[in-house]
């Protein structure tokens, strides 16, 4: 297995003809940072620290952070604890269904290195091998203050344009898929057509395709959208 490459690639610089493009990008980035809808995948004990962060004591909404229900609506995927292998499948499915830009936050030590489940055969140790994690909030469990500080850090990253690890998932899909296949077996497939999406939005990189995606395409059930037929 390859080591995690922490270098974040700069986004492809497309020529922008609009003179206001920079201002516009700036505005969108600012709004993104001030409006974060989170989907909390409460896998473990860290979930218990989220209600105080959201309700009257700490009130995340004043930062523009709101809970949302489905992956389609959300910007942030909060993984709040250990991820068993069975859970990880669902986490990946959920992550792929979110629309980009999307950010993953690993809360608690378990998402960093497996924590107290380090010796478990059924637990994924490092979340960032399977999903591009933007931010870890370590602790067992981190208090709401820590969660909010982490959120603020993410906001700063988004505003500066540094929070683009979601692009990494498209650009190095082969590597992520390889790790997933290593864990779930060769017939692993999610319902989302990640490669098609990467091509559609021109997010492909040199490592989007590779041996693992070739393996996927061998057994993949087709996922083309139903075309309108006259």
């Amino acid at each position: 297995m390859k080591e995690l490459d922490v270098r974040i690639e700069t986004p492809e610089q497309r020529p922008r003809s609009n003179p206001l493009a920079r201002v516009f990008d700036e505005l969108v980035r600012f709004c993104r940072s001030r409006s974060m809808f989170m989907l909390h995948y409460c896998t473990g004990c860290g979930a218990i620290e989220l209600p105080p962060a959201m309700t009257s004591r700490f009130d995340m909404e004043r930062l523009g952070i709101q809970p949302m229900v489905t992956p389609r609506q959300a910007d942030i995927l909060l993984i709040t604890g250990y991820v068993s292998i069975k859970t990880l499948k669902r986490v990946i499915l959920t992550y792929e269904q979110m629309s980009a830009p999307k950010y993953v936050i690993g809360i608690c030590s378990c998402t960093v290195n497996g924590g107290m489940y380090w010796q478990s055969y059924a637990t994924a140790k490092r979340l960032d091998q399977y999903l591009p994690v933007d931010l870890y909030i370590a602790g067992c469990m981190p208090r709401p203050e820590a969660v909010i500080t982490g959120m603020r850090e993410l906001m700063a990253k988004i505003r500066d344009g540094r929070a683009d690890s979601w692009q990494d998932y498209y650009r190095r899909y082969d590597w992520y898929l390889g790790n997933q296949q290593h864990l779930f077996g060769d017939d692993w497939q999610t319902p989302t057509d990640v490669i098609g999406e990467a091509e559609h939005y021109r997010l492909t990189g040199p490592e989007t395709l590779g041996e693992h995606t070739a393996l996927l395409q061998q057994h993949q059930k087709p996922l083309e959208p139903l075309k309108l037929q006259l």
């Binding site: 969108v28 709004c31 001030r34 409006s35 523009g64 980009a100």
Partner: peptide
């Protein structure tokens, strides 16, 4: 912010 962010989604 919410509306602009949602319209500004990449995918």
């Amino acid at each position: 912010y919410d509306v602009v962010k949602l319209y500004g989604k990449q995918t």
